Computed example of a mutant assay.
Amino acid sequence: MPTGFHEVRFPLRLALGTSGGPVRRTDIVSLSNGRENRNRRWRDARRHYDAGSGIRSIDDLYAVLAFFEARAGQVYGFRFRDPVDWKSCAPQTSIAASDQIIGTGDGATASFALAKTYADAGGASVRPIEKPVAGSVLVSVGGVAAASGDFAVDVATGVVTFVPAQIPGAGAVVRAGYEFDVPVRFDIDRIDIDLAQFKAGRIPSIPLVEIRP
């Protein structure tokens, strides 16, 4: 994660009308025979959001303004919870220690980076998870749930590290379940507040863009 990141989350109540999601870049070349060559320019998707949510109270308008000023506009990144994709599982499912494979033990490796795999019969994409929510991470080794004292989680990087006595043995599959935030920054250096009504108003657009490591 680049320098200039604040480990604070954009307030959930201020993002009720959020829209957006993953964006990919693909080069498509049409050939003379009518076929196409497609080339993936980005290995991973980059998420874009718009957190503008229409009418707000004066207090909420001020909260957005204060949060924007505390980040110095686009300078400092922050945490943002995707309204749909914020767990190691589906949004209406409870997280479990078996949700996502994050590695296989070799008897020596103590640290494993959190990741989320999106897969079906046609293919798969693995997404690094850098900003797990503190206290939400569950881990299992070889199908057995690990005790909370068996490992530590760096919530700033998404790395799970086992204590020396609990390092996964050779061939043991390490899995994890968790909640997570997306590291983002404001994609503007200006906030426009429209005081449309008495003691109420709106911010038509609050664009956010994911920060890549």
Results as ranks from 00 to 15, higher is better:
D60W: 04
D44W: 13
R71C: 13
Y49M: 05
H48V: 13
V75M: 12
V75E: 12
A51G: 01
H48C: 09
H48D: 09
F78I: 03
L65F: 08
A72I: 08
A63W: 07
R46C: 07
A51F: 01
V75P: 00
A51H: 01
R71A: 11
W42R: 13
F67I: 05
Y62R: 14
Y76D: 14
F68M: 03
F68P: 01
G77H: 04
V75L: 15
R43Y: 11
D59S: 14
H48L: 12
A63K: 11
W42Q: 10
E69Y: 06
A51W: 02
S53K: 06
Y62T: 11
G77Q: 04
W42D: 15
D59G: 05
V64I: 15
I55D: 02
G77I: 03
N37M: 11
E69K: 15
G54A: 06
R79S: 04
A70D: 10
F78P: 01
G77E: 01
N39Q: 13
D44M: 11
N39E: 11
Q74E: 12
A72K: 15
R46H: 05
L65W: 09
F67M: 08
F67P: 06
H48F: 10
A51E: 02
I58S: 13
D60I: 04
A66R: 15
R47W: 09
D44A: 07
R43T: 12
A63V: 07
R71L: 03
R40D: 14
G52T: 00
I55T: 14
D44V: 05
S53T: 07
E69Q: 13
L65R: 10
F67N: 06
R47L: 05
G54L: 03
A45H: 05
G77D: 03
A51R: 01
F67C: 06
I55V: 11
I55P: 00
H48Q: 12
Q74C: 10
R43W: 09
F78D: 02
A72S: 14
N39Y: 14
G73R: 04
Y76A: 05
D50Q: 02
G77R: 04
F68V: 03
H48M: 12
D50N: 11
Y76L: 11
D60S: 08
G52W: 01
A70W: 09
R47P: 00
A51T: 00
N37Q: 14
R46K: 13
A63D: 15
L61T: 01
R43G: 04
L61W: 02
R40F: 10
R38Y: 04
A70S: 15
D50C: 02
A72R: 15
R38W: 06
F68Q: 01
N39F: 12
